[in-house]
């Protein structure tokens, strides 16, 4: 077990370091001088050179990488070229929108998908299963931003229940803020729920064929108890894997949805930063997201051990 954990941890850290080198290298070879970009086209070569020195752009490459990576570790991401504020402040402000959005969407998707998967698996091949899986098949095919447009049309334009876009900020009160995250969360959650429901169903069907399920039924446990306590728990590994992938997707996948709803989240920040060539913001946010993906995957690996005691004894 400890060996397994150490191996996973080493791989995670190595991946993170490699990813940081890739991000740094890619943004390094990009055309466009940040100093020239900040000063505008009319600046003289001397002015640009002075700013380049101030920004540390003339230092040798390895040194600049180490300086940048060290800064990341101490959460000092530098200053945004376009906003002229520390990147960490921007990130904190935007994360206050994106993180709740991703969490609500993930919760919604799980709440919908697990019962649907259980329902389908326990009625395998019958009408209920066919209908549920047909709906899931459809859900997988729907692009979330189109679904978002349809939701806006029905709930914002037609029924006027929720705002069509924008975010009042958490300062405006919990309910108005939550209300403006509701449609985006649903739009994000439904296609994800469709995938998760399919995975839950097929994992459950596999488990339901196992001997220990028959044993549990034979000793007189009611079907429901077997389904929830024995089958679901054993089907959790593929489900957790997909959940981990989905959380990572949701953090970055909000880029398009945040654009649809004009939400000031991390996705919109990085999208605008890319189009404005605000490289410090881009590299910081990308590194944060990569770190989040790696951390989530590591957590998923660890949770296997929690769910499946057999993995604990094995190394």
């Amino acid at each position: 077990m400890t060996v397994y954990l150490l191996k996973r941890l080493t791989i995670a850290i190595a991946t993170l370091v490699l990813a940081s080198i890739v991000v740094f290298a890619v943004l390094e070879i990009l055309p466009g001088d940040p100093a020239r970009l900040m000063l505008g086209m009319n600046a003289s070569a001397d002015q640009v050179e002075l700013l380049r020195n101030q920004m540390g752009l003339n230092a040798p490459l390895p040194w600049r990488y180490l300086h940048w990576a060290g800064g990341l570790l101490s959460l000092d991401f530098g200053r945004s070229y376009t906003y002229s504020v520390p990147v960490i402040d921007l990130v904190r402000e935007r994360l206050a929108v994106s993180l709740p959005l991703a969490l609500i969407a993930l919760a919604l998707s799980t709440i919908i998908a697990i019962p649907v998967g259980l329902f389908s698996a326990s009625r395998r091949g019958r009408a209920g299963d066919t209908v549920a899986m047909g709906a899931a098949q459809l859900g997988v095919a729907v692009p979330n931003f189109w679904f978002a447009l349809m939701l806006i049309y029905v709930f914002a334009v037609w029924l006027r229940l929720v705002p069509a876009g924008g975010f009042p900020g958490w300062g405006a009160g919990l309910w108005p803020a939550l209300k403006s995250l509701l449609l985006p969360a649903v739009a994000l959650a439904l296609p994800q729920a469709a995938i998760l429901a399919r995975v839950t169903r097929s994992a459950l069907i596999e488990v339901l064929n196992e001997d220990y399920i028959r044993t549990a039924r034979a000793k007189g446990l009611p079907y429901r108890a077997v389904l929830w306590r024995h089958a679901l728990r054993n089907a959790m590994i593929p489900v957790l894997t997909i959940l981990g992938l989905q959380f990572a997707f949701l953090l970055a996948g909000t880029i398009i949805i945040e654009n649809v709803f004009y939400l000031p989240g991390l996705g919109r920040l990085v999208f605008q930063a890319i189009t404005q060539r605000d490289l410090i913001v881009v590299e910081s946010v990308v590194m944060l997201l990569v770190a989040a993906v790696i951390a989530v995957n590591l957590l998923v690996d660890l949770s296997y051990a929690v769910v499946d005691p057999r993995l604990r004894s094995r190394q």
């Binding site: 990813a19 997707f249 953090l251 970055a252 996948g253 880029i255 398009i256 999208f271 990569v290």
Partner: peptide
């Protein structure tokens, strides 16, 4: 390593 980069974000970049 490639899987660690959110695909959509990288495609946008």
């Amino acid at each position: 390593l490639v899987f660690a980069f959110p695909a959509l974000l990288s495609a946008i970049m």
